[in-house]
Design a protein around this nucleic acid. Structure first.
Lengths: 263, 263
DNA sequence: GCGCTTGTGAATAATGTATTCTCGGAGACA
DNA sequence: TGTCTCCGAGAATACATTATTCACAAGCGC
């Protein structure tokens, strides 16, 4: 707070140029983010050195300090707005294993929601709806998720098939056509087969939708539409479990989108 | 969010120096404020250019951009924490369908966590671990969940089988023994077959674990261990979807319990 | 071993920031 | 009015930080 406040307080005792600067910053606080001292000087119509001197007069070491201070003001304001609301609000009952799990899942779901753009979800939904046949393939760790997705798609009237064997995967992928969709689901490792399948599918002009680990996942770069899950920071078993939760969240997101379209 | 998240997500795919940088930043986020690229480099023990390259690899124009992004993360996190001090705190970004879905799921998960006693969860886990063979049966709406559960159990080394057909379900159930477990999963209707199966299984002294709708569900009263999901208040399609989310949460709870036992 | 990619840091170019210095106008005073 | 002084302003410049280039070394497939 102090920072912008100070400016307003000292406004009367400032020289012309200083006031111009103060006013501009107060008016366009967030613009400051992308301005260097020179740019700010140009916009306001003063010299770069005046900007620096202004910063120093307000008690900062230089322009960057002022900039940061203005930023902190923002953060602080937001935090203040928050009030108390500490205590995590959700999942009281720490004795209950479902609550503990829920807490961890919550983080994963938030991250998953944060990392996937709405338009990509929409694209995935459109691709599913537009596909004649859908082949679902998964790495070993994601087979359960693949099965889940496949059955849900069937329930929605999509021609979806999940193939477990690598050989049959190839065979099937070869019979895919342009109107079809390949959906690959992958978490940690074991994706070599998937890559081959994805590549040969793409060569035939088949669309590929991937549901993989963020970010640079080998499987994802061979896809047209990429959805991601961010791994949680846990020991191996739990990490995989939570990762599947994230994948399921994506799947549910797709299903709910398809449902919405239907009605 | 995205910024620190990205780092965590990409951690595995980073080189040694990059990981050192990522870890340091994640650990000492706020220290970054006063560090120039050179200082950060010195502290972490890499060259200044590596810091810059690291920033660029994460998608920023340069080190200052990264710094600002980290700052913004802070502000956003603070704002997120605030919420409306209600359950609204999470999943800001109302434009994102995954966030909307997440918000609804959150409620279901909380309810699910609230309604199931820890001891019942523990009992279910013990029953699964103690069983020689596990038959999974489901009503039509919960087949996907049943498949998911079954595969997870297989991954954990349990002899689990999911049977879809009613006739085969009976046949299988008849060959269950006292040491075995029947797990029935059910949501809305279509549970007649399940009841028969559960009854005949119990007559043979087989334990029955149910995962049904709260509260007075026909299937649950024929069970030894009862786990519940509370339906959400939504239109039909969404309600079923969310119900499955709750079921999956129970499944995950069981799996994480089994995992914990193993290690 | 040979070429290739990849990650690293030293050197350096480019950009951004702080300081110095000079200029010109406003006021004080003879 | 002349001129002295003070003060704010900007040009020039010194300094710092950041970005890029380049060269080298380790790992890897052939």
């Amino acid at each position: 707070m102090t920072c912008l406040l100070k400016m307003r307080a000292m406004r009367d005792q400032m020289s012309v140029n200083e006031r111009k600067l103060a006013d501009f910053i107060l008016e366009n606080t967030k613009l400051l983010r992308d301005y260097s001292s020179q740019q700010l000087a140009d916009v306001v119509g003063v010299s770069q050195s005046s900007v620096v001197k202004f910063s120093q007069k307000l008690g900062y070491k230089g322009y960057p300090s002022l900039k940061l201070a203005v930023y902190e003001t923002y953060a602080e304001a937001a935090r203040a707005q928050s009030g108390q609301s500490e205590g995590e609000g959700h999942f009281f009952r720490p004795d209950n294993p479902l609550s503990q799990l829920g807490q961890k899942k919550l983080e994963v779901l938030e991250n998953t929601a944060g990392i996937n753009e709405a338009e990509h979800i929409a694209a995935a939904i459109a691709a599913i709806r537009g596909a004649r046949c859908i082949q679902v393939s998964a790495c070993p760790g994601s087979i359960a998720v693949a099965k889940y997705l496949t059955y849900q798609l069937l329930e929605l009237g999509c021609w979806a098939v999940f193939v477990e064997s690598g050989q049959v995967q190839h065979r099937m992928a070869n019979s895919l056509r342009e109107e079809d969709l390949l959906c690959i689901i992958c978490d940690f490792g074991g994706e070599e087969t998937l890559l081959d399948v994805a590549n040969s599918a793409r060569e035939q002009g088949v669309k590929v939708l991937s549901l993989t680990r963020y970010n640079y996942n080998a499987a994802s770069i061979h896809s047209d539409i990429r959805l991601f899950v961010v791994p949680a920071d846990e020991d191996e078993g739990m990490q995989k479990l939570l990762f599947r939760s994230g994948q399921l969240h994506l799947v549910e997101g797709l299903v709910s989108g398809l449902l919405a379209q239907d009605s």
